[in-house]
Design a binder for these strands. Structure first.
Lengths: 159, 159
DNA sequence: CTCCGATCGTGCGTAGACGCACGAATTCCA
DNA sequence: TGGAATTCGTGCGTCTACGCACGATCGGAG
């Protein structure tokens, strides 16, 4: 039987392992794993996101994204301009240098992605992604169900 | 088809969602999600781990564990004593207050664990934990295979 | 017994992840 | 149209996750 605690620990371990590996790999190129995620989100996002939209797509926090953008902008990988119609917002986009760096980083990270996929049998990657999606969905504060959070006090885990 | 990148993003999203939820829940009790992990590891570890062993079991860094211990010790949840036989090491253990807090926190986190498990069908929790374990294993720097990291330049993902 | 390499913890610096409180701009609706 | 609620970004503080360079200690090889 797998308890919620075990699941949480497994999730934590896997994420931290991935993050460490990626950080170590990308460090040679002067960026962090999270900065890569930002650049990738921007690259795939078809130009010009607001900081908030960027944060949303990265499953990250606007405040966090802001400090990352400051670092990336200082290095010329990213550009922040005024939003055309909304004076509150700023648009974010990759610079040419940023796009170039992203392509380089993509290649650099390839073996790590291959390594993760290689650990999984045929079809297991799909399964894993799907299950992770279900957990994410359930954990996101999006729509807290009207029914009280835990109706029957489930005693699935034990300390 | 699920690419390595999608898998990485799914993993990141799930972990961050879990972490956020947990942090929010535990904040009322004055501890963070990661501090809970430390306390749980200590509680399950059968007393007296070295900082290094604790870090290993938490899938965390000795340096990180140290700063967490400083905070937890200042609040009397944890005790750091000299190691009986190794003058370099220090042993870490829960105080009575720490054990009490841990029990309280365990209950507080229950609905989150239930929520995650509830998003999964029968047997899926086991599957998810297993797949996460495989990925973790593959990503951990433990034994870097003698064969060069990526022999055949696999072109599984696309930017 | 005496080194020398491995190991433990420390201290410092950087980066991320967040919460919260602000000011400014936008939207909505009465 | 005027004001309230909302939304965007900022700034600040805290905690975690590391890497790296130390000093101290341990352990084994000679």
């Amino acid at each position: 039987m797998t308890t919620g605690h075990e699941l949480a620990i497994a999730l934590r371990s896997a994420y931290l392992a991935l993050h460490r590996r990626s950080d170590a790999r990308f460090a040679r190129h002067g960026v962090t794993a999270d900065q890569f995620v930002l650049l990738a989100t921007l690259a795939r996002g078809g130009e010009a996101l607001t900081q908030r939209e960027l944060a949303h797509r990265m499953a990250s926090d606007p405040s966090t994204v802001r400090s990352m953008l400051i670092l990336l902008a200082a290095r010329g990988l990213v550009e922040r301009d005024a939003h055309p119609t909304d004076a509150r917002a700023r648009t974010v986009a990759l610079t040419a240098k940023g796009r170039h760096a992203y392509r380089r980083l993509w290649k650099a990270g390839e073996s790590i992605r291959a390594r993760a996929l290689g650990a999984l049998g045929p079809g297991e990657a799909e399964t894993l992604a799907r299950l992770l999606g279900q957990v994410t969905e359930a954990l996101n504060p999006e729509c807290v169900p009207i029914t009280r959070p835990t109706s029957s006090p489930s005693r699935k885990d034990e300390p």
